[in-house]
Computed example of a mutant assay.
Amino acid sequence: MIHDADNVIDLNAILHPGSVYDHPRDVVQDPTISIAEKRAILASWASDAASVASNPALRELPGSNRIVTIDEILDALATLDHHPKGPPGGKPARLKSTSRAGLAA
C-alpha cells in the first residue's frame, strides 16, 4: 500500500478495505501498513456499519466479495497486541524463606 518510490499511501485500502482485503488475516499480514493502520481497518470492519442485516455476527465490507465473522476480525485484532512471554505480573517472588517455613512446621 505504500509505494517506496514516491512515499504515497494507498488511501483506497484505508477507506475501502473491502476492495483490497478478502480476510482480516490479509490485513494483519500486510507488511506495507503500520499497526495503527491495521487496527483502524480491522476496527472499521468490526463496526456495526459492516454488519450483515440478517445475521449481526457476520461482517461484510462494501466492495468485498467475502463475509467474515466478527470472531475472525477480533482474532486478527488480538494478533496485533503484544503478549508478555511469562505469567501476568512477572515471575512470582517468594515472600518467606523455605528454611523458616520448615522450622515453623
Results as ranks from 00 to 15, higher is better:
P84Q: 11
A93Y: 11
E72W: 06
A36Q: 13
G89R: 01
D4A: 08
A50C: 11
G63E: 01
D22I: 09
R66V: 12
L77H: 05
A57G: 04
P92G: 09
H3P: 12
S44R: 09
R39T: 03
I2D: 06
V27A: 02
S44W: 06
A46R: 11
Q29T: 11
A57W: 04
L95R: 06
H83F: 06
G63A: 02
H82R: 10
R66E: 07
D22N: 14
V8Y: 10
L80V: 07
S44P: 06
D10N: 13
L15P: 01
G102T: 15
D26L: 09
L80T: 05
S34A: 11
A57Q: 14
K91A: 11
P17D: 00
G86H: 08
I14W: 01
R39D: 00
A13E: 00
P87Y: 10
A50N: 02
I41R: 03
D4E: 05
S54V: 09
A104W: 06
R100Q: 06
P87F: 11
P84L: 08
P87I: 13
Y21K: 01
P84A: 05
V52N: 12
L42W: 01
A76H: 01
H82F: 15
G89N: 12
L11I: 14
D71Q: 10
H82Y: 15
S44F: 06
A76E: 00
V8W: 02
I33Q: 09
V20G: 08
R94Y: 05
A53I: 14
V68S: 08
P17N: 00
L61M: 00
S19K: 04
A43H: 10
P62N: 01
L11D: 00
R66Q: 04
I33V: 14
S99D: 12
D81P: 06
R94F: 10
P31M: 12
D75H: 15
S97F: 13
R100A: 14
P88L: 03
A57F: 03
E60C: 13
M1P: 02
A40T: 10
V8I: 09
P56N: 09
I33P: 01
L103F: 13
T69S: 11
L74A: 04
D48K: 07
N55H: 13
P31C: 10
R59G: 03
L103K: 15
G89K: 11
S99F: 15
T69R: 11
K91P: 00
L80H: 02
P56K: 04
I2K: 09
S64W: 06
